[in-house]
């Protein structure tokens, strides 16, 4: 899976769980994750979706270091390439 595909799928998952009013194309890589409209439960559902969809296992210590959407894309790209 290339980075572009990861980005596209991730944005769709973000849109589903973050309750963003904006169109999925409005989600930019430089946007901060904690400004995407998540609450403390929907962020957990989102993380679950990421693991389920990309077939990766995330670590909470890694997740809390991620600030932007780009960080998450890079993380998934690293996990799926492994």
């Amino acid at each position: 899976m290339n980075r572009e595909e990861i980005t596209s799928r991730l944005k769709a998952l973000l849109k589903k769980q973050s309750q963003l009013k904006a169109d999925v194309d409005a989600i930019q890589e430089e946007m901060k994750i904690d400004q995407l409209g998540f609450d403390s439960i929907s962020i957990l559902d989102f993380m679950y979706d990421v693991e389920d969809h990309f077939k990766v296992q995330t670590e909470v210590a890694d997740l809390v270091k991620m600030e932007k959407v780009r960080d998450l894309i890079d993380y998934i790209a690293g996990k799926t390439a492994a």
Partner: peptide, 15 residues
């Protein structure tokens, strides 16, 4: 508070 706005706050505490 359960109403604190940072959605990652609980994960950070666990981490």
């Amino acid at each position: 508070s359960k109403y604190k706005t940072n959605p990652m706050r609980f994960m950070k505490l666990l981490a």
